[in-house]
């Protein structure tokens, strides 16, 4: 296992997209220390910020410290395990293709944006556009799984194409906006305009939404087999759904009628 410990806080945001355990597998510690990080408009070395110890060959990397100014850590990672003990910055795990990222601390915007595979597990709160698309991109997340044990900001899963996002906390506005397919589970309330522009895909808002979108049509309540399958899958992944969540009656809304209306929004049945 390779261990990086933050020894100097950067003054400006640092472009840290080179930090990923699979890319360092065959490098020596001096080579790793010499990896360039762009700090403001200057190029500095990795060991200017971190003390480095351990062995990178097993593709396990642990980073300790407040890294909220380091952008893009683990982006494009294809394999291995990255663990961060402390806050992380924007774009963490963006374009992820494989492996696992575990974050103990809050993270910035664009967590796992446009990722295609692998798993991100966040024990903290996330910023906006979790698993979403970058401006101008056609697709957001295209595969893999994101588990968030805290809350998320706006536009979670925007233009999401495939994969699963499970959020134990609350979400901001525009949850799953322009989502193409995939599944988002949110256990606490979501903000306004959830599912706006949804084509296919499923939004499971067990905590309800601030307002039910007008461009959705309510369908009859049924016991969906997929929900059982999903809850078993989440349990196996260590994301346990409380029994109270599973036992509550759900209403199914079909939409978005302004799009092709093949998606679904599952909400708690309103109490009379």
């Amino acid at each position: 296992m390779l261990k990086l410990t933050l020894k100097r806080q950067p003054t400006y945001p640092v472009e840290a997209g080179t930090i990923a355990p699979d890319r360092w597998r065959n490098l020596s510690l001096p080579q790793i220390g010499g990896i360039a990080l762009v700090h403001g408009n200057r190029s500095l070395r990795l060991d200017d910020f971190f003390s480095i110890e351990g062995d990178p060959s097993d593709e396990i990397l642990e980073i300790q410290g407040d890294c909220r100014l380091f952008k893009g850590i683990g982006s494009g990672m294809q394999s291995g395990f990255l663990k961060m003990l402390g806050p992380s910055g924007w774009h963490t795990g963006a374009f992820l293709r494989g492996g696992k990222i575990e974050l103990h601390g809050d993270t910035g915007d664009h967590l796992g944006s446009e990722m295609r595979g692998g798993e991100i597990r966040l024990f903290g709160n996330a910023g906006h556009a979790v698993g979403g698309a970058y401006s101008g991109s056609r697709h957001g997340m295209r595969g893999g799984t994101i588990f968030v044990e805290g809350n998320c900001g706006h536009e979670v899963g925007s233009k999401m194409r495939r994969g699963l996002i499970a959020i134990r906390g609350a979400c901001g506005d525009y949850l799953g906006v322009n989502m193409i397919a995939g599944t988002i589970v949110c256990l606490k309330p979501a903000g306004i305009r959830a599912g706006a522009g949804l084509k296919r895909g499923s939004l499971l808002c067990f905590g309800g939404v601030r307002e039910i979108p007008l461009n959705y049509r309510r369908s009859h309540h049924v016991d969906l087999t997929f929900l059982r399958l999903l809850s078993r899958f989440l349990n196996r992944q260590g994301f346990h759904l409380p029994p109270s969540v599973l036992q509550q009656p759900l209403a199914r809304y079909c939409g978005d009628l302004l799009s092709i209306a093949r998606g679904e929004l599952l909400l708690p049945e309103p109490t009379p």
Binding site: G143, T145, R162, G163, L164, A181, G182, T183, R200, G201, S202, T225, F226, L229, L230, F233, Q237, R262, E264
Partner: peptide, 14 residues
Amino acid sequence: WQMSKVLGTARYWR
């Protein structure tokens, strides 16, 4: 009206 769902490595059709 069918929907595809990918959970882990498996794809399911609803």
